[in-house]
Write a protein that binds this DNA or RNA. Structure first.
Lengths: 139, 139
DNA sequence: GTTGAATACTTAGACAGGCTAACTTAGACT
DNA sequence: AGTCTAAGTTAGCCTGTCTAAGTATTCAAC
């Protein structure tokens, strides 16, 4: 087995545990992790449906259902694009923005607390690996 | 915002992309990623239901449903513990083992290919960060 | 040694999240 | 005008997850 394959196996295992960790972090929060992710996309500006779907790597009908639920919950509002009547836009409501802030704080605190159990040297190693993880994931 | 919080945000974002990457890796494979994970747990020995549920951080009824489907698909077989008639054990069938091998090869190849797009220096950085990720995730 | 609590698991019912297929409406391009 | 393409939605199906409730077995305590 090549070095890359060994690395692949180990990375895969580590990721599995980290994902389970983050799942526990958001359990009981007032939005699901998917909803949190979508709210995050809407933080700075309104988006069109297809933009959201692509960004979240899901198909358009999936995003439609997701946004339907969030609209019912009062977290987002649909709008229209005056220059193209086919397009629906989505933006945060005040309620949605508040919800986003609350959950973000909780997540950040949870992960930060975990990170603080690491030694400064370990934190440094992790910080340097982040751009690499990023490159790997966005390819 | 503290250094830990910054790190937390960045890590969270990187992980999101990596998870999406791995999801694409198994899309179209003959087992779902959950099934793959369960098959992996059974590789070396039979397990009892509650053991599996705990290991995968799900509740027992969830694992029951999962195993029901895999049993229907012929990937696993239920057995009994002679010393305690309440306990059900689960083990791989020949078919299940074959399926596990196929999917594992595909995953490994996919991730390894991605890893090979990194420079040796980047691979080194990643390799050193793995124990840290592991420590973080298993806490 | 019978009964009562605890343990291991299953079933049922609900919901989120994902997909494909089929439909509607609106633009774009002859 | 007529047709092709694009943007969204609806509907139907599946997986994955939960809680609540039920069954069967073990164990402990009288």
């Amino acid at each position: 087995m090549s070095a890359s394959q060994t690395l692949a196996e180990q990375l895969s295992a580590s990721l599995r545990h980290l994902v389970l960790l983050l799942r526990r972090a958001v359990a009981g929060q007032p939005v699901t992790s998917q909803q949190y992710a979508v709210l995050g996309s809407l933080e700075h500006r309104a988006r069109r449906m297809s933009e959201l779907a692509e960004e979240h790597a899901v198909h358009l009908p999936t995003m439609t259902v997701q946004i339907n639920r969030m609209e019912d919950a009062g977290l987002v509002a649909r709008g229209s694009d005056p220059s193209d009547a086919r397009v629906r836009t989505v933006e945060l409501t005040e309620e949605g923005r508040a919800r986003l802030d609350v959950v973000r704080q909780a997540r950040r605190a949870f992960l930060a607390a975990r990170l603080e159990t690491l030694t400064p040297a370990e934190q440094e190693i992790l910080a340097r690996a982040l751009p690499v993880l990023d490159k790997l994931g966005r390819s």
